[in-house]
Design a protein around this nucleic acid. Structure first.
Lengths: 218, 218
DNA sequence: TGCTGTGAAACCGTTCACAGCT
DNA sequence: AGCTGTGAACGGTTTCACAGCA
């Protein structure tokens, strides 16, 4: 029962808008914890460092949430937004690649919060299989991916394997039925029908940062 | 001698363009390894999954690199592009936060390649200080950041600390003189004059992926 | 002929400005 | 009076289309 009825379309949400809405939701959580009852779009804009009209436009994509002359009711907006964005329930995540990065992610608060929980790691290394990460996430053999995804009800797969193995691992995840893949390998994978891939290329992030550095004033 | 003379301006490069150029450079490396001598913009476009005109426009921001009727000379373009983007030399990176993520990054190939090398980790935990990561990166006390950055000639700082400590650690890095900060903490830091901050918010990445998932066809 | 480099056109996202409501 | 929601203006990026060249 995940309030899927009469869900406003999430299409037509640009990457940037999605980003901001996610940030907005985080901010609303903080506001709620602070006991703030009501907030206006200029108020939110200041917190997030964006334009107030932008916030209203972003929200307009999803429905009407505010009260004219007043603003937004924090708890209400947070609840409705969370439901619409599908972040009001816990999604099961599995991670392929039980190397240092994979294990760090499996144990991190980032991936184990109100909306996500890592339930399994996968690796081809027989010495790791059968073990557990520091916080207790079990490591299974990659060959069991398909059965495990089904068994655990995993919706999202994280790729933390070397670039050579990325494509194969991604295909295995897609075929196992995950709906989204978060790819940490510095390689292009997919596309796969029915599975969304999002790349978080750490090498690329570091490179683009380096490129954007203002040349040293010599 | 880092070929800094007559460098075309890197201003006016959008975030997206920077991204694509970085990807292009990676692709050129692959092509060179494959022994490909020459490639056209449609050829590159197909590899990268973007429009051919886009590639020509991106390159046009930096100069003229091609030969009409022929295309681009792979090795030449790679060398010139690498020099212009400043990726033709090794930059020293330091990582603040020697937790699982920080250590995983310090040891990863992502951060130790042709353009980057992690030379130190920093932590406030006395039990970690003095130790080393698995591949031997030394862990120093965060108090020594300023002196260390200078000593090592570090240009880039990576933030892998809990969100509560992010702002303070970021300021320490900025004051220590790094030119760029790659922030993995789910928190806003800065801005700081003279230091570029790039956020790689893992929680946000996972959330935006989840949001973009096509709703399950029920 | 086939490609690059580039002006012009189309597209998309952001910002402005205001009508309408409380 | 103050705010939301939104049509219209703006600005930037992407794509098209072609002139110029090997």
């Amino acid at each position: 029962m995940t309030s899927a009825a009469s869900r406003p379309r999430r299409e037509g949400l640009s990457e940037a808008a999605t980003h901001r809405l996610s940030l907005l939701l985080r901010s609303l959580g903080v506001l709620e914890a602070e006991g703030v009852d009501t907030i206006s779009s200029p108020g939110l804009a200041q917190r997030l460092g964006v334009n107030a009209a932008q916030i209203r436009k972003d929200l307009a994509h999803l429905g009407e949430f505010g009260v004219r002359g007043v603003g937004y009711h924090v708890a209400d907006l947070r609840a409705r937004l969370g439901a619409i964005l599908g972040l009001d329930r816990v999604r099961v995540v599995v991670i392929v690649g039980a190397g240092h990065l994979g294990q760090a992610l499996a144990d991190s608060k980032n991936f184990n919060g109100e909306s996500f929980r890592v339930d399994a790691l996968f690796d081809v290394d027989g010495r790791k299989v059968g073990g557990r990460s520091r916080t207790g996430v079990p490591i299974r053999h990659t060959g069991t991916l398909r059965a495990s995804v089904e068994e655990l009800g995993a919706e999202i797969g994280v790729l933390a394997v070397p670039p050579e193995s990325a494509e194969a691992a991604a295909r295995a995840l897609a075929e196992a039925g995950v709906r989204g893949i978060l790819n940490f390998a510095p390689a292009t994978v997919g596309p796969f029908a029915g599975t969304t891939v999002k790349n978080v290329d750490l090498t690329l992030s570091l490179e683009t940062l380096a490129i954007q550095l203002t040349p040293a004033a010599t």
